[in-house]
């Protein structure tokens, strides 16, 4: 799973922590990857949304989503 992952993402149950540092690092790494994937999907979705929404509504949509 690569280098030891420093960032703690979620609180782990004691039984998971007891499995050892490899298990703990793997969980945090996978959670971090899931977060990054989700953020990228959101950015792409916003781009697609702005292409689909009729032009007169795009300003309002941008304002709401803060784009």
């Amino acid at each position: 799973m690569g280098t030891r992952f420093q960032r703690r993402t979620v609180e782990l149950p004691d039984g998971i922590t007891a499995l050892g540092p490899d298990a703990v690092d793997t969980v945090h790494t996978l959670v971090h990857q899931a977060e990054r994937r989700q953020a990228a999907e959101l950015r792409d979705a916003l781009d697609r949304t702005l292409k689909i929404v009729p032009r007169p509504l795009r300003g309002a949509v941008k304002k709401v989503v803060g784009a």
């Binding site: 782990l12 149950p13 039984g15 998971i16 499995l19 298990a23 793997t26 969980v27």
Partner: peptide, 19 residues
């Protein structure tokens, strides 16, 4: 998730909910 193969089901369920 092979590193979690020895985890107890209850711990895995709690972990899933937390994540």
């Amino acid at each position: 998730l092979d590193v979690l193969a020895d985890a107890e089901p209850e711990d895995l369920r709690a972990l899933t909910q937390s994540i």
